[in-house]
Amino acid sequence: MTATLVHLGRPDRTIKARITCTIDGHAVTVDEGTTILAACRTLGIEIPTLCFLETLRPVNVCRLCVVEVEGARVLAPSCSRATEAGMVVHTKSERVRHARRLVLEFLASSVDLSTTPGMADLLAEYACTPARFGPPAPQALAGERDAAVAGHHAATEIGFAATVAQPVKTDNDLYVRDYAKCVLCYKCVEACGVDHQNTFAIAVAGRGFNARISTELAVPLTDSACVYCGNCIAVCPTGALMPRAEFDMRAAGTWDETVQTTTDTICPYCGVGCTLSLHVQGNTIVKATSPLENGITLGNLCIKGRFGWQFVQGPRPVDAAPPAGD
């Protein structure tokens, strides 16, 4: 190799020390800074998560991934807690199972998890009986939760379990927001904000049980800063955020993922070259996403990529009258 005047390549990253810790009795050696969750995955230990996503900075709010670290007073979120040399971790202890079970029951008793992939299995695995908190309280009126005032106590309806049930927000043609299904995982806020899109059309508003995802003054999306990239939909773990097309097909009972195919291609618009995964049902594109692991997109798209594919399904010249040549 020839000499160069200066270093040309990628800035040197410090080589990380390797540390060894013990998880469920197995010793594992990982790079310093590796999270407990990542270390568990190298061992094939499954940890359930809701608010964690590889492409987002961990917010560790759902607490489903908690594990027991010996010597610690409370459980640790495995998604964000880094392993340390000599750390002894238990992922299946009774304390852990109890916390996970209660977290799942808290969510299942307050949020509609019917479209959360894998949730039914999790609830069964942890023997959850969310109904033990009482029957669900009646659904809130449209806008009621958006108007809740921080720190001020609404009278408890004795005998009912409070929920986040509320009408679906359908304020535009491209996607719906069904916050009755929102577990407040913050992923949409992160994706709309600093982690990816930096549009900040939505944020968490209010606090406590009244905390909710909101635009400013809870205005409709069409009055907000939303640019309809749908990167929030891409990260939503519960189906609270859903393309309008999918929402309508589900409502009509025609959405059938078992017959859908997914083909990766390249977006037809600008020259960035985003990978589009086209979800096709019956030779019709029904949804476009991008793979999380794609280095260019990290699962993100813009409005054109996510929603702008419909033209191929519109009238085409073969459908039209022949041109009037001479």
Binding site: L102, F106, S109, A162, L184, R207, G208
Partner: peptide, 16 residues
């Protein structure tokens, strides 16, 4: 009332 609402155990647990 004073739970920030960030994590599930506190947000829902204080209500339950």
């Amino acid at each position: 009332d004073e739970s920030c609402g960030q994590c599930v155990p506190c947000r829902v647990g204080t209500v339950r």
